[in-house]
Design a binder for these strands. Structure first.
Lengths: 329, 329
DNA sequence: ATAATGAATGTAATCGTTTTCATTTATATG
DNA sequence: CATATAAATGAAAACGATTACATTCATTAT
């Protein structure tokens, strides 16, 4: 494996000149440039990034921290991030915490050890104290979930407003008894979405019934299924359900169908996220669309700017209510 | 940001000694070790991996190449890989090619430039020539899809046998007209699964009807849906469908249901992969389960061994037919 | 007390780049 | 033609670790 030294010898120039050619710098004559390029080709030379990285003290690697790789919510965001960073010669290290603090620490160490230049965190369960602490010294951006009051820049949507939209839609088509399938209220987005749910009900003079509010720690289909099972047994069965994620909504939908009930006639359902699969259920799922790809692009650009030392501002993007079969027969 | 030099000064020892403490080597007295550890704590020292990596010429980064991050087939495999490598102090760089040769090249360069120590490729559309070429100099393992006749080690299942199983199941429950939704036959697995499909039919004296065999370049739900649309218009409509991936099968299922037909009474469906979603459809999907997590673990260990310079053998793991609602009313 | 042994520690080279600064070479100006 | 200026090139330090080898120190045997 040839190194820059050997290329220099082969071309009969100094390593500095080779480096200049490599980095497309000015001030190298066409003749020597050709000489160097020839030597590179002849020796099959590929620059060693380790040397370069050490010298430049950067890795051009970015950490993306997510709770779980199989949650489709993150796909489009990640695609947005990936295509943005790759054009700027960065790469991403996808880190799945599984909400395990040990995993989290391993990833944090990666940036402390300078194996990564920055972090985009999308994990609601992340250790906030440590993250804020880390953000003093390293470039960090939050995406989707963020820490209220910290000064880590974030990109997100207005969760309260979005939930308000979703529930208002249910009310408008005539529902008065609406259940909420929420996730853990430790998480900001869960609290915000609940607020939106409550505001919509209050605004239409519908009493908030705590028996209609459910929580789950896990965000998979199964949780939605289990909670819907409980909802179906409720004495005054609600006529509609708002779930804070499509996965939960799809699990719920599945349970209703399995019991031989009709969606939306017996129970209407609204989800959140507009994941791909939400269009493959029968009926298709009404849901709140987040501009996921765009969120990824924003987060990526913000992080890269932050790495460059620029000042970056948090961003709140628009959402959209997508009305489909699960609320309109 | 302190470096090893400053720690050495603070502790009043040489950098060699600090390095020895860092790497938990023998031959350091308890006293000096304590001294060094104190200095490390005091200066908040974190070793810089770039220095270490350059010296050791390794990055402990492994490339995982997949066609598309949103295909759930890869999740469990990736989880298997991730948890295996992390315990051995490696990390993964998830690389999505989108079947775009430019992307692929960027990733290949990563290993040429020594930013990664090896590759696990799961991309059926990968440039075989380049991959084989690269495997002369770098550690490469293939997972799931592999190159026949190359000597890149792989871990996979017996695709032909699995498809044979699936189709035989359909025949056993009485079907005689069975459509195949295949992917691009450029891919080995597609050819193998078709072979299994044909063998099952032949073995039961069912004529193979080319009109019942469909191909798609894209592997999303929508492709399954579109193809099923065609199948439903066929003059002698098949009574069963075998799709080479769950995504295709779910799209197909959706189309059948949407047309008001019954699964499995009007059309039975078998998928492939046992992705999470396959349990969330109504009815649930009969499918072939691949031992995905295990495949990931194997691939990871094989790669790490290969990096160490050991000889590694290819592996073929068992599959399993999971019978569910879409073939048994 | 001395030599022999082994453990602990230090010195300096090394990995492969980039970049500052000095020096050489080419070009333009009078 | 001499000089001023700009462009091209090179020498060497730097990035931060690891490690071969040399050296010092402590321990034991004679």
């Amino acid at each position: 494996m040839a190194n820059i030294q050997q290329v220099a010898e082969e071309a009969g120039v100094s390593v500095a000149t080779v480096s200049r050619v490599l980095n497309k710098q000015k001030n190298v004559s066409a003749k020597t440039k050709a000489l160097v390029e020839e030597a590179i080709k002849k020796l099959n030379y590929e620059p060693n990034m380790l040397g370069r990285n050490l010298r430049n003290s950067e890795t051009r690697l970015l950490l993306i921290i997510i709770p779980n790789i199989s949650n489709p919510f993150y796909f489009e965001i990640i695609k947005g991030i990936e295509s943005t960073v790759i054009s700027q010669n960065y790469h991403i290290l996808l880190c799945e915490t599984d909400s395990n603090p040990d995993r989290e620490n391993i990833y944090f160490d990666l940036v402390k050890n300078r194996m990564a230049d920055g972090i985009i965190s999308m994990d609601p369960a992340i250790n906030e104290e440590r993250l804020v602490n880390l953000s003093q010294k390293y470039a960090i951006i939050q995406c989707s979930e963020y820490i209220l009051g910290s000064d880590i820049p974030y990109v997100t949507i207005d969760n309260e407003e979005a939930a308000y939209h979703a529930v208002k839609h249910l009310i408008k088509i005539g529902h008065k008894s609406i259940a909420l399938i929420n996730s853990d209220e430790r998480f900001l987005y869960a609290r915000q979405r609940k607020l939106g749910y409550q505001r919509a009900l209050e605004e239409h003079d519908i009493a908030i019934n705590d028996n209609n509010i459910f929580h789950t720690k896990k965000l998979g289909f199964e949780s939605g299924q289990q909670i819907m099972k409980k909802i179906l047994y409720l004495p005054n069965r609600p006529t509609a359900v708002f779930a804070v994620s499509d996965l939960l909504a799809i699990g719920a939908l599945k349970e209703v169908i399995s019991k031989g009930l009709h969606v939306p006639n017996d129970i209407a359902i609204v989800g959140f996220d507009k994941i791909d699969f939400s269009n493959m259920t029968h009926p298709t799922l009404t849901t709140i669309a987040q501009p996921m790809y765009k969120m990824g692009v924003f987060a990526a650009n913000m992080l890269i700017n932050k790495i460059k030392g620029e000042e970056v501002e948090s961003v709140i993007l628009d959402h959209e209510l997508v009305i489909r079969g699960s609320t309109s027969g």
